[in-house]
Design a protein around this nucleic acid. Structure first.
Length: 423
RNA sequence: GGAGAGGUGGCAGAGUGGUCGAAUGCGCCUGACUCGAAAUCAGGUGUGCCCUUUGGGUACCGGGGGUUCGAAUCCCUCCCUCUCCGCCA
């Protein structure tokens, strides 16, 4: 959520931000609701002040006297009025809250202009995509693929998008996860294993609710949500807390399975491992001092990049333009790995600075040494990394003439063999 | 799952209808004393929101609702914690 004061004091700044993000928000309506809410609030608070003053007087008065009775009768009327106004206030407050949730975060000045994916800036490119395996093919076309990545049986047991990983496939995923977690630990991220079901309050704090309810799996009868990313439980770790400034920055990482209903997706994106309902991912998350959030974003991005580098996978970094930035992000980089068989880039990490937007909604603050008061932290997160697409690129790029897949040197220790075999 | 107890400020812990944002102790901050420290003494020390912002107002005693002129205190409901029993990886 954006700071309502920013909206009140500098609405033009917010208008410009909305334009840069190519969103359509009725700011005048939001401002009108804000104004109505504040009017109602003041009315109710004035009435309550009368009540409080009368309470003191009544407490000191001998009970049962005519004066006392008269005062009670008078305050009875005020009480009725308060109750009536409070109903109005609650209504407008709810409208105001809902209206504020339609206002996006402000994009950082360094975010390029643009309306959509075509306007994203290629920030950097690493590795030689032309040098990728001459034997590359789309991973789902590799002979024997279905034996190790059993989508058919997964569909029988659960549904489409819930594959079984058998033998070397399972082993390779486990190797990747171990590799990611250990490398991240070396970079200073403390490993956390969070709950993978969260309650509605947590899903609301990170913005999955109320709007994206249909994207999550919900349990019955407890109404918990299967996490779409470890970002949700991890960010909520410090929800409604005040952190000592000396403790910042806090680096954490977590592996979780991620569950996404992916309602409405279709086409080539959904082939093979490209898009699943359940997948494995290691998430990186930081809580940082506002003055350092952009250097921390760059650092997190390069931490994620180093994983791809160590795996020897060609990739590029996109700097997302205003129109492709997302509602809550102030700045975002996407890491895309090259899948030589599909001849396309696959997003494996999205590194974002939310500034105080997420922290305000989740009420995550630090006690400022300078002011002595609680201030909102900045939150930054990104994948480090999402497994299935890294796996897809690895299978495609490292495919040998004999149908085996060469395991990157960094992974051999975890995997235990030089090659994965589909035979 | 069953039975019981309980959730109050950073912590401990009073308060069971009225001037209570809340005693007291600890902790923390400032000052005095001291060469310095400890001890002692004095003062201060929660968070959110609103306004005509060196100030004023209002809300918050696990969450929500109710009774009442007035609720930390009474009632309903949900959540959580602890103890005992049962079940279980």
């Amino acid at each position: 959520m954006l700071d309502p004061k920013i909206l009140r004091e500098t609405p033009d700044l917010v208008r410009a931000a909305i334009a840069k993000k190519h969103l359509d928000v009725d700011l005048d309506a939001v401002l009108a609701v804000d104004s109505a809410w504040r009017t109602h609030l003041q009315e109710v608070e004035q009435l309550r002040a009368r009540q409080k003053a009368a309470n003191g007087a009544l407490a000191a008065m001998p009970k049962g006297t005519p004066e006392f009775q008269a005062r009670v009768a008078e305050m009875k009327a005020v009480s009725a009025q308060v109750k009536e106004r409070e109903v109005q206030l609650k209504e407008t407050e709810e409208k105001f809250r809902a209206a504020m949730l339609t206002v996006p975060n402000l994009p950082h000045a360094s975010v390029p202009e643009g309306g959509g994916p075509a306007d994203n800036v290629v920030f950097s490119t690493h590795g030689d995509i032309a040098a990728a395996s001459p034997h590359a093919r789309a991973h789902w076309e590799i002979p024997g693929f279905e034996k190790l990545f059993d989508f058919g049986r997964g569909a029988k047991v659960t549904g489409a998008g819930f594959p079984f990983y058998v033998g070397d496939a399972s082993r390779l995923i486990r190797s990747l996860l171990g590799f990611f977690l250990e490398e991240n630990a070396k970079a200073g991220y403390v490993e956390v294993m969070p709950p993978i079901l969260v309650n509605a309050a947590s899903a609301t704090a990170t913005g999955q609710l109320p709007d994206k309810e249909g994207q999550m799996y919900e349990t019955v009868p407890d109404h918990f949500y299967a996490v779409p990313t470890a970002e949700v439980p991890l960010t909520n770790f410090f929800r409604d807390e005040i952190i000592e400034e000396a403790a910042l920055p806090i680096y954490r990482c977590a592996y979780t399975p991620c569950f996404r209903r992916e309602a409405g997706s279709y086409g080539k994106d959904v082939r093979g491992l490209n898009r699943l309902h359940q997948f494995d991912k290691v998430e990186l998350l930081k809580w940082v001092h506002p003055s350092r959030s952009y250097e921390e974003l760059d650092k997190l991005r390069s931490d994620a990049e180093s994983l791809l580098q160590k795996l020897g996978l060609p990739y590029r970094v996109l700097l997302m333009c205003g129109g492709d930035l997302g509602f809550a992000q102030a700045k975002k980089y996407d890491l895309e790995v090259w899948a030589a068989g599909q001849k396309r880039w696959l997003e494996v990490s999205s590194c974002s600075n939310f500034e105080a937007f997420q922290a305000r909604r989740a009420q995550i603050r630090y006690r400022s040494k300078e002011s002595g008061r609680p201030e909102l932290v900045h939150t930054i997160n990104g994948s480090g990394l999402a497994v299935p697409r890294v796996l897809a690129a690895l299978l495609e790029n490292n495919l040998q003439a004999d149908g085996r897949v060469r395991i990157p040197q960094a992974l051999v220790g975890h995997f235990g063999k030089e090659f994965l075999s589909f035979a």
